[in-house]
Amino acid sequence: MEKKTYIQAFCTIENNKIVLNGETVFESENTGFADFSKKAYQHFEIGYPKFFKMDNLSKLAFLGSELLLKAQNPNDENNTALLFANKSSSLDTDVKYQNSISDKENYFPSPAVFVYTLANICLGEISIRHQLKSENSFFIFDAFNAAFMADYANILIETQKAKNVLCGWTEFFGEDYKAFLYLVGNEGAIENTKQNLEILYNK
């Protein structure tokens, strides 16, 4: 890769806490993700009722992207690609959906649940919210793959498929979750490298 790209902002969501660029911006008591995500939604005055229709994975990805894209210049937005990955795909919702079809006597598959049994739906939610008609892709790895994420974001920018890339590791299964999202562009202080991503991810 000839051209360097940079991490412009980053955000971690785990253990009922949201940390933006190293600073805790929201924290709540341990009352489960549903309650935590609702309180965060209220705290940041998001005002987007569709949020409550989303599954947990989408809520997690949505909250992180909300904080990172809010500060962006609106003219750049349409050229911000989405590059997301996780370990458990949409399995959290898959299990919920499977339960709705496992009992033949009480068999009522829900279309509103089924639609979220695809990991990339969260990219659709973010794209709709921020009107990002841009490159997007969802990948699955056993664990956060910093090398791949750094390479692929660089490729998107270097080949001019996008000006910026919103990257995210958004893992959700059961009550275990961790989101690490960051915005990559041509300028910034932290170089978008495997090493730097690993440091920020493990912070």
Partner: peptide
């Protein structure tokens, strides 16, 4: 490490695009 593309019904053709991009970037 395997790269899994799971992007709904475009996954199969998106995988070709991902392969091409990674090879072009000399990864």
């Amino acid at each position: 490490e395997p790269i899994v593309v799971s992007n709904a019904c475009v996954s199969g053709i998106l995988a070709v695009s991902v392969a091409k991009r990674l090879i072009q970037a000399n990864v």
